[in-house]
Amino acid sequence: MKVTCMVNGEERVADGVWAGESLLYVLRERLGLPGSKNACEQGECGSCTVYLDGLPVCSCLVAAGQAEGRVVVTVEGLSEGERLHPVQEAFVAAGAVQCGFCTPGLVVAAHDLLERDPDPSEADIREALAGNLCRCTGYEKIIEAVHVAARRRLPEGRREVG
């Protein structure tokens, strides 16, 4: 079958898609966007998290056909040209990246959290990222990265309070 959707602001068409393929497979193997990761492919680890019509989803659990006519944003679509998004920048700065396989999913999940709540508490961060598994870092620096990103995104006046 043929699947047409908006991916990172561009209309993309995948042809010859087998009905059993996931959105993750189509992004990685047919549209040249391997940033979303194939870690568990069963909705456990969050490494394949993308936005689908503005909501974060595990793209491994979305059938490719379900994306027809919808808007997808992947980790590749978050930076503005050469400039990293503050969440991406904070992950590098805070040392929250080691092997990095969980990173794309965590970056999308953290991006979504800060869109909803610009100044989350540590408990809020832990809850929001509970669906994303990391095996290297022990999570401490990931949580720190989200705090750093939040501080950078907040208007000047509110930074002291947080």
Partner: peptide, 21 residues
């Protein structure tokens, strides 16, 4: 210093063994 592969890893461009094509 920052990891030399850090930027590639946060943008999804770092080529893991399962990304090869």
């Amino acid at each position: 210093p920052r990891r030399p592969d850090g930027t590639l890893k946060v943008t999804g461009e770092f080529a893991y063994s399962s990304d090869l094509w």
